[in-house]
Amino acid sequence: MSLIKVQDVKKIYNGGEGEVTALGGVSFTVNEGEFVALMGPSGSGKSTLLTMLGAMNPPTSGNVIVDDIEIYNLTSEKRADFRIEYLGFVFQQFQLIPYLTAAENIMLPLAITGKSNREQVQMAQNVLNKVGLGEKGNRLPNQLSGGEQERVAIARAIVNEPPILFADEPTGALDSKNSEEIMNLFKHLNKEGQTIIMVTHNPEFLSYVDRGIFIKDGMLDESRHSKKIAV
């Protein structure tokens, strides 16, 4: 069943040097429970596409439909509500809040949901256990290794149990060992039913995903789309 429908999405920026087409009409769907990699070279438009799927960046034309909701028909504030309910984000470079502990960072999306402190602490501990950091909830980000910070970022993205998890170059700042561990963690989450869309330029990670969507110069590169490759 299609969870995300992207219909002829275009994004054109008006810059000092005239119009720049970041996306020139992209269409695809993502099914519930799929693990999809958005791939392409730098500047191809994959991060732009991710922010559009993430209800943060309205397209110039076209539709993005998630769970039958045309997200850009919503007001900016309703899209914020939509994000907290439907989406989890793992940003580039972890993007943890430096003055909050790992557990507090994880509880951030819960801070505006009206859940009690006790509930929040329990939910944060559950995801900390899930990402293998059960004992490190009280540490500040600068007291954690890069791999551990990435795990905290993933835990923060899934603590609200969102239907969709977005990850933008989640292993970009990690060494190969940590990258492999993180990809295994994503694979594990996907096996539990989590829909994941991940931006990466590393072709090795195609082995972890169900499908690779390639973008080049703002257009889908249909010739390189890949089906599931066994790990």
Binding site: A80, R83, F91, Q95, P109, I112, R156
Partner: peptide, 16 residues
């Protein structure tokens, strides 16, 4: 700026 961007991306409203 970046931190506020994270809050907004997560789903914080302007009011938050």
């Amino acid at each position: 700026t970046r931190e506020i961007g994270i809050f907004r991306a997560i789903g914080f409203r302007k009011g938050h």
